[in-house]
Amino acid sequence: MLAKIAGVAFLALVGASGVAEAREQIRIVGSSTVFPFATTVAERFGRKTRFKTPVVESTGTGGGLKLFCAGVGERYPDIANASRRIKQSEFETCKNNGVTVVEVKIGFDGIVLANAKSGPDLALTMRQIFQALAKQVPVAGKLVDNPYKQWRDIDPSLPAIKIEVLGPPPTSGTRDAFVELAMEGGAKTFEMLRALSKTDKAAFTKIAHTIREDNAFIPAGENENLLVKKLQGNPDAVGIFGFSFLDNNGDVIKGARVDGVAPTFENIAAGDYGVSRSLFFYVKKEHVGVIPGIADYIAEFTSEQAWDEEGYLSEKGLIPLSAEDRKSVAAGARSLAPLVLVSEQGP
């Protein structure tokens, strides 16, 4: 009896809701780094226009592009956020599934090394970062397991404290970018590794990308707020995270200079700070005009009041493109020019 009532009630609930009706809101997936910016735009867009607020999922860049490229139709997301450029392989998948990709570059994100306010001021070079964190480093012309215990062991100008770096786990896009920019950049300052990168790219990548596993580097989970707390509790530790967390917590942590450049908004925007990456979102052209509001969402994201130096996204920590780039990207995005990916192997 009870079961019967419950069954009827369930059917009524589902029936009344109409499962098979067209999607009314934009669906966005992808990078957790772009998530705060995409949600900010989505919310303003929802408040400003007659469209529903888009649903934004934080799936990570790779996971997002996988969902995005899976096909055309309302079951698949309309937009994918990415904290790196789409890969050739992902682009091929998209193409094979009939997806035309429109790329929109939205700005930059700096990756900062920061420590507690009470800790020492750090001024590092990429070379020193590589020496502190790589599993194998060149010492006197030979690759050996990383012998450095204290920062001072690397360079006498650095403080005599234990190397203890808290960073994102391997699944994180921040980690990928850090390894590619800072570690590779540091590795290339060694003549022997530079030579290797020309002759055997794979071997070089392995050396440059492998982080030491002897507790000097501690994978600290994806929650960057927790990382900030840990740094406050341990002034000797250094953390690696996205610029927006430094921007929001400037009163408790401070960023290390890298190659003599401080991680400030201006320096990253000007391209002076070395460890920064571009952020993107990708639009499925087939869905524009089918799912309501996509063109307006693109227009909102690429409007000056959103993404210029004083726009509301910069208050959330997005580092804007130059005025010129903004103009050309906005024009390309609004005309929905499809992305042409010539080849991943760049210069």
Binding site: G18, F35, A38, T39, A42, E43, V55, V56, E57, S58
Partner: peptide, 17 residues
Amino acid sequence: IGMVAFIADIPSRVTDP
């Protein structure tokens, strides 16, 4: 199943996000 997402609108049906 995609419920870990930024959803600003209050759902009015069981099929709303």
